[in-house]
Structure formats: structure tokens, C-alpha cells
Nucleic acid binder design. Structure first.
Lengths: 185, 185
DNA sequence: CAGATCATGTAACTGGTTACATGATTCA
DNA sequence: TGAATCATGTAACCAGTTACATGATCTG
């Protein structure tokens, strides 16, 4: 799994509490996980048990104590080791493609409506991704190189969505010309 | 979940046994799942229990009986309903991007090696995807339109990988020019 | 003789999601 | 008054993977 490394990375940059992390996961598209408590709190316990992070308990009046985690040298070492690891292949779960595969039973109008909706959703996500890649507080830029890297990560998401947009657009025009070819005869 | 619809789709096209389906999932990149028995056999039982498919048991000498499934009118109706459903957003699990986010602790050589490897892997997958999109027995083409749709599905995968290739390439040249800018001063 | 292919299936586990629980404080 | 924010955590569940088990037959 990668959630532990994702958290370890963030903690190697800044101290965070579980609650903070949850918000990072919710707000940043790079951290694709559904900001869900369960895993975050449990991984923090694991990381702490393994000596990869330290835990500082900060009591608060009338609120549960904040537990702030920081990475240790062992954590840093493990992180560096992971970063050098051979790259994992990106995985896509593209249910819509399967849906399309059996969409020949739809009328031309129904099919185009489906694709139009998809195209618009992807367009919207591209816009959001572009906006967020420019101003995102959840990414470090301690050096020019690090800023460039995070810039590239943002760009990757933008390109991904834009790719889908133009693909959907192309398919729609292809379908349309096929339609006119059929009726025009 | 979508595995049930994926199977229902295939069965609406051709009769398949669990074993057949397993191979389809293994061989086709569109059906991203790891051709794993457990889920396939269990979904088939579920689909049959719900009257969406029929089961025909074909005894064989010295081999376990083949159980061949076919979709029923109810299955076809449910499939059509699903196909009309609002498109699900594609999900990416891109661990490598996270890895990159913390890769500023690597030397320029280490970092470039990582990206080079990624680029090559994506290039290889693009080639495979392109080859498979042209000759794939696991996709129906009962009409021109259906053939076009499956063609588009294949193209989507190719574009996805090619997109990653050019992204990685761009990033590498950016990093390199940053390097020479630094050392050149 | 070892390993692949045909064909079924089950057990155990990991990863991830949703929903629940507590309880004070602030804001509309 | 109802919802959001701060901050912790647990329970129950679903999806998906790996590995195991059987046993004949074919291929290198």
C-alpha cells in the first residue's frame, strides 16, 4: 500500500495531526483517497509503533487533545528508500468505457447525451485541476526543483482530464458523421 | 460495483463459462481486474440467483463440468438500464506521482533514471495497447457503430499511456535545463 | 518429469468506504 | 435552532487480491 508512504511524505515535510491529514486528503486531488478517518488514524498508530514518526500530545481545553506527528530519521530513511523504488504503474478504473462497450443498444441521441455529459464533467474537472495546480497550500516548494516537481504533478492531472475531453469530443464527431452517412443514403 | 455489469455485458454478447471469463479478464486491458476466480465465480452465482443469467451444465469426461451462462431478458433489461446511467468518473491510482512529490531528496541522476524508467514502461504499454486495440477477439462488432465504440475504447487506453509518455519526457527536459542552468553559472 | 491447460471452487487477508459516537464552540 | 468546525476514534461492511485445493490431460 501507499497510504503509509503518502502520510510519511507529508510528515517529512511538516508536522500534522490526524485531523490535519484528513483535510489534506479531502482537499488535494493528488491524494486521491476519500479523506476517511479510519485508515488515517490507524496508519498513524502503525507508523508510531514502528518508530517512523513521533507523537506529541497537545492538550486543549474542552476539546480532544491534538496529537501531532513528526517523522523520525528512520522515517526519513524509509521514505528515501521508497522514493527510489521502481515506479508503480498507474491504475485506472474506467467504468464508463465498459458502459460504452455495450452502448450500441442506445439510440444516437441517448448515446450522444451520455458522451456529452461525460465530456462536460471531464472539462469541469480539468478546470478545477488547473486552478488547484497553481495555488495549492498542500505542496512544498523548498527548492526550485521541488516546486517544479509538484507543478508537474498538477499538470499530469490536468492533462489526464483534458485528454478525456478531447477523446470524448472526437468520438462524438465520429459518431455524428456515421449517423449522417447512414441517413443521408 | 461494476464487475457484475462487466460480466452481464459479456454474457449479453456471447455465452461464457467462469473459466472463459477469467481468461477474458486476464487478456483484455479494458477489463482491468486481475482475472481472479473468487469474484468471478461468486458474481456468476449471484447473477444466476437473481435470474439475470441462465446456467447450463455441460458434463465432461475426466474434467469438471463446464457451466455456461447466458443472459436473460431481465439481464438485458438491467444492462440497458445501467448503460443509460450517468457516467462514472474515471479513477486513477497514481502512486508514482506521490513518489515524485518527495523525490527532491534524490540526486539529478537518480531522479532522471526514475523518470526514464517510467517513460519507457509507459511507452511499452502504449505499444501493447495499440496492438491490442486493432486485433482483439474479446470485443463485439455486430454493427459499424459497435465496432467504432470498441475502437474508441482501445484508443482511450492508447492515449492514456501516450499522454504519460510525453508528460514524463517534458518533465525530464525541464529538469535537465534546470540542472544546466544551475551548474552553468 | 515439470509445467501448462482445462475447469471448478474456497479461505484468508488487505485495502478502502460509510456510517456511527462524543462533545464543546462558533456562525447564520 | 440547525449546521459547521475542531478533534478524536470505532464498527461494520464491501471490493479485491493471493493463495490454496482437486485432478486429468497435454506439451516440452
Amino acid at each position: 500500500m501507499t497510504l503509509d508512504y503518502a502520510i510519511l511524505g507529508l510528515l517529512s515535510w511538516q508536522p500534522f495531526s490526524g485531523y490535519d491529514l484528513k483535510k489534506v486528503f479531502e482537499e488535494s486531488p493528488v491524494y486521491y483517497w476519500s479523506g476517511n478517518n479510519n485508515q488515517i488514524y490507524r496508519t498513524l498508530l502503525d507508523l508510531h509503533r514502528d518508530g517512523l514518526v513521533t507523537k506529541e500530545v497537545i492538550p486543549q481545553e474542552n476539546l480532544p487533545a491534538r496529537k501531532v506527528y513528526r517523522s523520525t530519521p528512520q522515517g526519513e530513511a524509509l521514505l528515501r528508500q521508497w522514493v527510489l523504488t521502481i515506479p508503480e504503474l498507474p491504475q485506472r478504473k474506467h467504468a464508463f468505457l465498459l458502459q460504452l462497450g455495450w452502448a450500441d443498444r442506445l439510440s444516437p441521441t441517448e448515446l450522444d447525451a451520455l458522451l456529452e455529459q461525460y465530456q462536460e464533467e471531464m472539462q469541469a474537472l480539468a478546470v478545477i485541476a488547473r486552478a488547484r495546480s497553481t495555488n495549492n497550500p498542500h505542496q512544498p516548494s523548498r527548492t526550485t526543483r521541488e516546486a517544479l516537481l509538484w507543478q508537474a504533478i498538477g499538470t499530469n492531472w490536468v492533462l489526464f482530464y483534458e485528454n478525456e475531453v478531447s477523446w470524448a469530443h472526437d468520438l462524438r464527431t465520429q459518431l455524428q458523421s456515421l449517423e449522417t452517412a447512414n441517413t443521408g443514403t
